[in-house]
Simulated assay, not measured.
Amino acid sequence: MPPATAAERLLEVRRIYHEPDIERWPRAVQVLERFPDAERVEVASHQDIPGLYGNPGGVERWVRTKREVLVLGEKRSLQARPNGRSADFIAPSTSNGCAMACSYCYVPRRKGFANPITVFVNIERIAGYLARHAARQGPKPEPNQCDPVDWVYDLGENGDCSADALVSDNVRDLVDLFGDLRGAKASFATKLVNRDLLDWDPRGGTRVRFSLMPEPMAHRLDLRTSRIPERIAAVNDFVEAGYEVHLNFSPVVVHEQWLGQWAELFDQVDDVLSERAKAQLACEIIFLTHNEQLHEVNLGWHPRGEELLWRPDLQEPKTSHSGQANVRYRAGWKARWRDQLTDLLAERMPYCRVRYAF
């Protein structure tokens, strides 16, 4: 028997919540036809689904919900928000939520409990908005940490585009769009190796950022994702297929053996990457930020991960811009650890430019 595909492993859709008159959108029809046996439940809004969002009992069905449920809705607010860190702009989302279950993910706490994939079906409007926005920018006046030449648009702030591509053609439409846009580039981070993307034609207009962490950490924290060796092995193939490929070393989780594990990971990456992949490589380094409410939720479905994520002896409180109670590593210690990790990277992978470390 052949191994299960990514779609078979992640999705067994049994229920689709959708807004009224959703079939007026061709993209909604595509998704409904892809999962013809799923129960359809009409809801007033994709943002307010009784029993799915804000339901404490949902913690017991965390992974099952991600596997069995999809949501279809319309993205009504279209705005490219300035960013300046990983990308110049955060593009309007074409999805929200994820089929994977990384225990540190910030997205579930926005809606409450398990957050399955929501597909925004008005892709034509989103793509049109992005094309007009990119055209208004004109040539980039000077290089920055996002890119030396192009304006960079992050497509996947609230989900994983590789997983979204298992459900609809939204991501492919945007990869095609940015392949034609002069002076603009799409970007998304992913923890899933979806080899269907290798058959597309990005024409250098899309940056894929494979997220990596040491395998022992990923085994505990990156649930329902592609294994770390599989992600590393995919880099060369995606470069050959016409993508720009960077790495996200994130989240960096500090523990007693953390620096040695990162040294092993850097050596593993160096051994696998082709010279062509190394020549175009850059990375982001992001240390863990956790959340008090998410910590309490995680204790109900994956407490072993919290042994690594919730470290009051190493962390300090930080109130987010939205008023949530977050924790991050203590500032003085984090600065020292960041320097240790970037020095280690420079030693083991001197060709890998650090776009930013946070």
Rank of each mutant, 00 (worst) to 15 (best):
A91E: 02
G183K: 05
C105W: 00
L309K: 09
G305Q: 07
P214R: 02
K140T: 02
R304K: 10
E275F: 10
A114I: 03
F358E: 10
E23Y: 03
K278E: 11
G179D: 10
A127N: 02
D343W: 05
A134T: 06
I228R: 01
H246Q: 08
V43R: 06
L174P: 06
I117G: 08
A4P: 00
R76H: 06
D343I: 05
V175Q: 08
P303F: 00
V13G: 05
W151A: 05
A4G: 02
R203T: 12
Q324N: 13
R209Q: 08
Q324F: 08
A346G: 05
N236Y: 02
A6M: 11
L299Q: 14
Y351M: 13
A114E: 13
G84M: 05
V13E: 04
E240M: 04
G242A: 08
G204C: 06
D313H: 12
L52I: 08
V152S: 09
C105E: 03
Y243T: 10
C352I: 15
E68R: 12
E307L: 11
D154F: 07
V59R: 13
S226Q: 03
E33F: 02
D160A: 09
P350H: 13
T65H: 09
G323S: 10
P3L: 06
L259V: 06
E296P: 01
W262L: 04
Y243K: 08
R24L: 01
G84D: 05
A134C: 11
H219A: 14
L78I: 08
P251I: 01
Q47Y: 15
R61Q: 13
R203K: 15
